[in-house]
Nucleic acid binder design. Structure first.
Lengths: 209, 209, 209, 209
DNA sequence: CATGAATGAGCATTCATTCAT
DNA sequence: GATGAATGAATGCTCATTCAT
């Protein structure tokens, strides 16, 4: 994943350097988290992946948690508009599911393109499943959105929390698999997941009426 | 989860004490893993939860990994027969899905009854999802079984890996939610998941024919 | 080195077993000391080399030091008579030096014959020189004896301590070398050392008169 | 032993502090090794002797072995030129032996002047002889040099290895004694050792002709 | 503000020693 | 008296964090 540095406004040399350092730490953290997992990562691992000195880390972040949240926010900042568009344009449950899964799987693929090229295992160390920041926060976003959409289409009486859990669980687990296939094909995953989920929800709605 | 200690054969006091200590460490590890997650757990945390001295840990296990595997093996040893029975008795896809989800959610609830009573959060620290040993290995079991069943009922041409991923993802995420609800209700979860999955697979089969 | 077990007096079964255990520990200790050096040896290493349990060690010895001393005493007990004979039979300096070096190098070779066969490095780990008990105590014996002999032959005015140090240093260092040669040849070493030392002392006596 | 810190080039405060810390650890290690022996020494003992924190040790050395080697290299670096000069200027065996023993005993005395003043026992714990780094590496140097010299003066047909062992053994053992005497007198030791060795070698050469 | 060495609390692991069986 | 598991003090080592330069 290559993050474009887009200085919002004119900056002095100093400010630009600062921005670049922050960026460097974030990118390094993302890389290392993906490589060895959040818990296994220590700050030295992150710093070693940059050209900075260890002390510099603390000029930007207080802890590993804070970098993690910054990455998450960063992802959310980029994913939220996509999801918002999905929500706004969705006419019915079907179009929502397709659009949402498409957005998620595509986003996931793009976020990990670098790791994919490097052959870096996306996640899942020995018996331990580590979410990348993207997945975690995106999950939360989807959960919230799905609730809204279900309400909108009059299926609010279904067990929204379980539907959300089911939808997210599918997305997560299938997302892992998708990233291991070559070529990585978000469309295939989207079609599969949306179709399954749609039929499932309709069936639940029928038996719950 | 209360493990019954069932000495297979007559044991001396010494042998019984050894068995009890091993059990104590395993139970403590399970508890702490559930409480703060695998990675965050250190060996001191585990032995602190027992009446044993730190050195004693090493009389039984070489490392945290080894306890983890022992727990996993323990769980698998108990879950495998259930799953086997499910597989053998399943007449069709529907009965398989109901039986399998039932087995899983019930097992999960029982495994965690102690933690549930204590109010221990099942898993998921800040942004990090940690699989309990049960979930990890049981996932593998389900994956393998599901593949066999699908083959048997002539749906082998579907994308088994994605179906497996979807089914497992649903189970995992819904399982987490289930454990947070009071009362914990495996039947509810089972019915929900099986219905959703069944309709979904049938739809996929239809559109893929 | 095979130590002959020579029960001094008639013993009961129990007493014989005790003697055998003590012997087993001593032999194991000797072996391990030779193999990895005194400091590097721990009690588990010694016990592992026997068929006994760790606790049993403490029925016979309080510590590693005590085993060491027991071994040393054992060696001394066997070497002292030889040295005594040398001292008694020595007519002059020459005969004393030959006999003493011969006794030492022969004893050293015999003490280490087992280790030599096994190819066990006699001593000297990385940069650290470890005396076997034999060498240490035998050194002391030689020191004392040499002093007596020198006095007897009227060279007491020479710097006995330095002569002793020189003689012992030669014996030690040459002993190490001797044990590394194949075949191990005590006679060769004896002749060499005695000749060198004799000429040296005579020269010192001359220039010090 | 007082090591002069001679910053080759202008250094910043930081660089000087680093150098000083490294020096402090080396000096502390040397001291503790001399006091209680290499094997008995642990890293905490070393840093306790400095004003540094435990972690700092690992900024400079990976292990006890590494400090040991650094000390040894340090000694060698300072002793080698002396020995080289001895070798180059030696006209005959006699001058070589005097110069070499003088260099060694003088060096040994200077290396240990601090320990001597403090009354630190030079070495030798209970039955265990621990070489200081100096002695070990210097021994190797002498061995090599002696071989060259003997060859040069046409005594290569003698058993060089045994002569070397004898010369070194004498130096080592006499060195120990010398350090225990007050005042420490390298000249006395030199004269004694060289005279003894010279006569001895000449005698061997005669009887081996 | 960057640097990177110093810090020291904290964890894994070993091992001499004890003691119930 | 033999056994071997339990003990816990002691040690090696890591790493987040601070701070003088």
């Amino acid at each position: 994943m290559t993050t474009t540095i887009q200085p919002e406004i004119r900056m002095g040399k100093r400010a630009r350097a600062k921005e670049a350092n922050r960026r460097a730490i974030l990118d390094a953290a993302r890389l290392v988290f993906a490589r060895i997992g959040y818990e296994a990562t220590n700050i030295r691992d992150i710093i070693r992946e940059t050209n900075l000195a260890s002390g510099t880390f603390y000029n930007y972040f207080k802890s590993k948690e804070e970098v993690f949240e910054a990455i998450a926010n960063d992802s959310v900042k980029r994913f939220r508009p996509l999801l918002q568009k999905v929500r706004e344009e969705a006419k019915d449950l079907e179009s929502y599911l397709y659009a949402a899964y498409s957005a998620y799987f595509t986003f996931l693929a793009e976020e990990n393109d670098e790791a994919i090229e490097l052959g870096t295992p996306h996640m899942s160390l020995i018996g331990v499943r580590v979410d990348t920041p993207e997945m975690q926060t995106v999950s939360d976003e989807i959960a919230a959105d799905l609730e809204i959409v279900m309400d909108k289409i009059g299926l609010g009486h279904l067990d929204i929390n379980y539907i959300t859990a089911a939808a997210i669980g599918m997305a997560r687990e299938m997302g892992d698999h998708m990233l291991k296939r070559r070529p990585v094909d978000p469309n295939e995953a989207t079609s599969f997941a949306a179709k399954l989920m749609l039929a499932g929800i309709e069936e639940l709605a029928k038996s719950n009426r």
